[in-house]
Amino acid sequence: MSSGASVPELAAPSPASPQQEAELAKLIVSVLSLEVVPEDIQPEAPLFNQGLGLDSIDALEIALAVSKTYDVKLRSDDERNHRIFASLRSLAAHIEKHRTR
């Protein structure tokens, strides 16, 4: 690499549409039997711990539902994992980028 070149930052995937986010919110509320209506999930709010209060059982359930619905396999080995699961918005964007159905 030449001395003047800079390493391009890993771009976050472009956001999913509001409809796609709403569809994912509905899926999450239904597979986890959450006591909220899908519209109440703030797209930018954290899904785990302080935000929606999800835990590791939920992470597995979400991975299962996302795999079945969108054929997208969630993994924990890449560095971006924390970003993917950070919020409804980031998860929806990741799914839209990788979905095959």
């Binding site: 597995l60 991975a63 299962l64 969630l74 993994r75 924990s76 080995d77």
Partner: peptide, 12 residues
Amino acid sequence: AGASFFPSDVLD
């Protein structure tokens, strides 16, 4: 010692 949480992690 590596990723082993999600089903895809475990299988791969």
